[in-house]
């Protein structure tokens, strides 16, 4: 059951990340999406891939996104 909830969470958070107006929030949602995706990878028996997805998708790339966003708006909203 939990795995189905995760699938739903991934789809929903992907949509939310796109619809969300505030870019900081949308990146936080993206982090959540990446992390749930890593969990799904684990449920689908791909442990190696889950490790990479968890570290790259849920930690490093959102960090780069946040830095890029900071550099583009200098901490303010558009």
């Amino acid at each position: 059951m939990f795995d189905y909830i995760l699938l739903f969470a991934v789809a929903l958070s992907a949509l939310m990340a796109i619809i969300q107006e505030n870019l900081y929030k949308s990146i936080i949602i993206l982090t959540f999406e990446s992390f749930s995706l890593a969990a799904i990878f684990h449920f689908l028996l791909a442990t190696d891939v889950a490790a990479v997805q968890a570290i790259l998708g849920a930690a490093l790339l959102p960090g780069l996104f946040i830095v890029a966003l900071y550099k583009t708006t200098q901490g303010r909203d558009e």
């Binding site: 990340a17 796109i18 870019l23 993206l30 999406e33 790339l61 996104f65 966003l69 583009t72």
Partner: peptide
């Protein structure tokens, strides 16, 4: 432009 990049990620 950042939304486009998020889309590429998705």
């Amino acid at each position: 432009i950042l939304k486009k990049i998020i889309g590429a990620n998705l």
